[in-house]
Amino acid sequence: MNRKISIRMSGLGGQGVVTAAHILGVATTLEGLVSTVNPFFGAEKRLAPAESYVRISSSQIDERGEVLYPNIIMIFHPHVITLGKCYTMPFFDGLQPEGILIINSEQPLDLSKEDLTKLGQLNARLFYLPATQIATQVAETELSTNIAMLGGLVGVTRLVSVEAIRESLAERFGGRKFLASATTAALDDVLKSKFAQVTQLVDRNMEVVHKASEAVQEYFIKKKEAGSLCMLR
């Protein structure tokens, strides 16, 4: 991989966009790639908009700060788009040609004609994934939504291997101490309390990853009838 891939993860506070970025960043570095990870610079609160960013490359990454020109946008909650709960408006501005969108939703969202036209012009690829549903079914907790989203990413791209995600997960929840805000630490405790052991937590979440990687579905944006979608497979 020569070119740098920039990922924007948008969600609501408590959904784990920061943790997902952390796990993805660690996983890619475990595979020998270079990565930088940072959150949106705000005083994030539960259910308020939250964003985090991951940059991945095979060579040194210099650029810092918010990802302004993402190659991949991961949307952890439909409200990010439908209710505008995000920090970047207009939301799809900056998306690069052939960019990828992965949206956590059980069915396609009612995207505006304008957005779909823009995405069509960019040759963007649009994916839907019922991440919260999978998290609730497989891991029996909504808190695994972010892991499901990573599963979706694995299903769509070859950015990182499933093994690296497992290793990163184990380090994040069982390994050495790392830096977390008080609210993140509190959610960690809730998540950990749902599993008897860290290995269990990792195993169940890896199931989530697998399930999500299979469940992610691509929708084709029909260019002729701007604003309409059809399922690709």
Binding site: T29, S35, T36, V37, N38, F41, R64
Partner: peptide, 11 residues
């Protein structure tokens, strides 16, 4: 620089 350095995870 706050956030750009403090909150960015890198090697």
């Amino acid at each position: 620089d706050g956030f750009f350095v403090t909150h960015t995870r890198e090697k």
